[in-house]
Design a protein around this nucleic acid. Structure first.
Lengths: 113, 113
DNA sequence: GCCAACTACCTTGCATAACAAAGTACCTGC
DNA sequence: GCAGGTACTTTGTTATGCAAGGTAGTTGGC
């Protein structure tokens, strides 16, 4: 139980929300997402991202299309489906409530009941 | 991939932080923590909390002492160790950075780059 | 045309951990 | 002594994050 492990744990559940949000802003492919998430200091690696995208796709939240690249192999560009859009909206509520709950607990001082 | 599952995912990593924080405010035993977490709408069940407390104890972040109860079986009252206190402080930073990162991503509009 | 380097996506196997459910044990009141 | 309540523990299942390795298309040097 070291710090790094705990930090990873903390980021875990948030990933899905961030990814859906990034995709909601317009068609993207995996490497772009990786860049943006890394830039935001939310660590992700390929081995996490690709299976997650596949899960989201299989759940009907995402769709994709192959696009030829002018420099390299073809890319899978992801878009949100309608149900993905609804799901994202619910996750947004969850995230806001979670922040509130945690900060409520953290704000309490000893015997602050 | 349903909503409830995603919500659970999101709460996962945060739990450890919340629990350490609750303990940092003074000696508590598991049932009290369960109540407080449930009141804050952060779902936990015994099967999650007890093993987590054991893990934290084994990592040297927590210590406990048995206290006789006036009405029921004895209780394990947990306290933070010094290294638990340091750990909590680092998790606090992590949580603040995580909120910032996520909200940064979420605040971006399409082509907001 | 062949090979190396690069990009992009996919798969396998292991370790961790959340949870449901069932179990153990202690106490009180009758 | 046994029913009911409280408190802590254990077991087995399932999910999933990730390291590492794999497949495959493209480009450029020669």
């Amino acid at each position: 139980m070291n710090l790094e492990n705990a930090q990873v744990q903390m980021r875990k559940g948030i990933l899905e929300y961030c990814i859906l949000h990034i995709i909601s802003r317009g068609e993207v492919y995996a490497s772009t997402m990786l860049e943006e998430l890394t830039a935001a200091k939310i660590m992700v690696v390929e081995g996490t991202l690709y299976p997650l995208l596949t899960r989201l796709k299989n759940s009907g939240l995402l769709d994709y299309k192959w696009v030829e690249s002018s420099s390299g192999p073809p890319r899978k560009y992801y878009i949100l489906t309608e149900s993905g859009r609804q799901f994202l909206s619910q996750l947004q509520t969850t995230w806001e409530e979670l922040q509130f709950s945690v900060n409520e607990i953290v704000a309490k001082e000893s015997k602050g009941e």
